[in-house]
Simulated assay, not measured.
Amino acid sequence: MVLSEAQILAWLGHFMWPFLRITGLFITGPFYGSSSIPAVVKALIAAAYAAALAAWLPNLPPFPADPISAIFAGLIQIAFGAVLGLAMQIIVSIVASTGELISLSIGLGFAEMQMPGSAVSAPVVYNLMFWAGLMAYISAGGPIFLFAAIAHSFQAGIGTGGLAPWDQLTTLGETAISSAVWLAMPVLAVTLSINLTVGLTTVFAPQMNLLTIGFPLLIIVGLWVFTGSIVFLDHDFHHLMDLAMHSVTAMLPHG
C-alpha cells in the first residue's frame, strides 16, 4: 500500500489541529496546566484527547507541507487554545487573590508556605483560596467545558474568529482586581473597623497599643469573619464562572 503525500497530510491534519489547540489549553488552563502533572503525562493526555476528537470532528484541512506555514499555523492554534484556558485561569486567580488580600488585611501576610512544584512561596491564605477556587472550578465542570469549547471551536474550521469578540477577555481581566476586592469585602470592612477602633483607643489608653491588643484581635476576628463568609462565596463564584463561559463562547469562531 502506497500512501501519497496528500493522504499523509490529510491524516496528519485531523490529528495535529486539535492537538495543537489542546496543547495551548494545557499551557494556561486551570487543572490541565497544573505543574503537579508531569509534562509526559500532559503530552499523553493531549494526544489522547486529540485522537478522540480526530474521529469526531468534520473534515479538517490538511496540515501545511511548507515548514514555515506549518510553524506559523501551529503557533496560531497553540495561542488560541492558550487564550481559552486563560479565561478560566483568571477566575481561579480572582479567588486566589481574594485570599492574598485577606491575609494582608488581617496581618497574616508573613505566614507563607511553598507548595510542591512551585518555585516561589505564597501566603497560606492565598494557597488555601487557590485550592478552594480550583476545586470549585472542577466541581462546576470547568475542565469539561473547556474541552467541549475546544471541540466546538472546529465547527467553523480551523479559524480563530475575529479580534472583536476577544475584547471580552480584556473585560474579564479588568474585573479581576475589583472582583477580588468585592469577595474580600467582609473581611476588609471588619479589619478597617478594628484598626480605627484600636487607633482611637490608643489615644486614651496608650498601653493598649496595636501589638498587644490590635494585632491578636485583628487575626482572631479576621479569621472568624473569613470562615463565616466562605459559605457566601458560592453565588459570586458561579457568577464569575458564567462570565468566563460567556467570554469563551464569544471567542469561538462561528460559521
Rank of each mutant, 00 (worst) to 15 (best):
Ser247Val: 14
Met115Thr: 07
Val203Phe: 12
Ala180Trp: 11
Arg21Glu: 03
Gln89Ser: 02
Ala73His: 14
Ser36Gln: 08
Phe80Ile: 02
Trp56Thr: 15
Met1Leu: 11
Ala180Gly: 11
Ala148Trp: 02
Gly133Thr: 00
Ser35Met: 07
Tyr49His: 07
Gly141Trp: 10
Ile71Trp: 13
Pro58Lys: 00
Leu104His: 03
Ile106Gln: 01
His246Pro: 05
Asn59His: 14
Gln7Phe: 07
Trp224Arg: 08
Thr197Glu: 04
Gly107Tyr: 00
Thr212Tyr: 15
His254Tyr: 10
Met129Val: 09
Ala180Asn: 09
Ser97Gln: 13
Gln77Leu: 03
Asp234Ile: 15
Thr212Asp: 15
Arg21Ile: 01
Ala65Leu: 13
Phe215Ile: 11
Ser69Phe: 08
Gly133Phe: 01
Ala46Gln: 10
Met129Thr: 13
Ser93Cys: 08
Phe215Ser: 15
Phe154Leu: 06
Leu252Thr: 04
Tyr49Cys: 11
Gly214Thr: 03
Ser247Ala: 12
Ala132Cys: 10
Ser229Ile: 09
Ser118Ile: 06
Leu20His: 07
Leu192Ile: 11
Leu12Asp: 08
Gln155Thr: 07
Pro38Val: 02
Phe237Trp: 02
Leu12Ile: 10
Thr201Gly: 11
Leu218Ser: 02
Ala96Val: 10
Phe15Glu: 07
Ile37His: 05
Ala6Gln: 11
Ala132Ser: 12
Ala184Phe: 12
Gly162Asn: 02
Gly214Cys: 02
Ile230Pro: 00
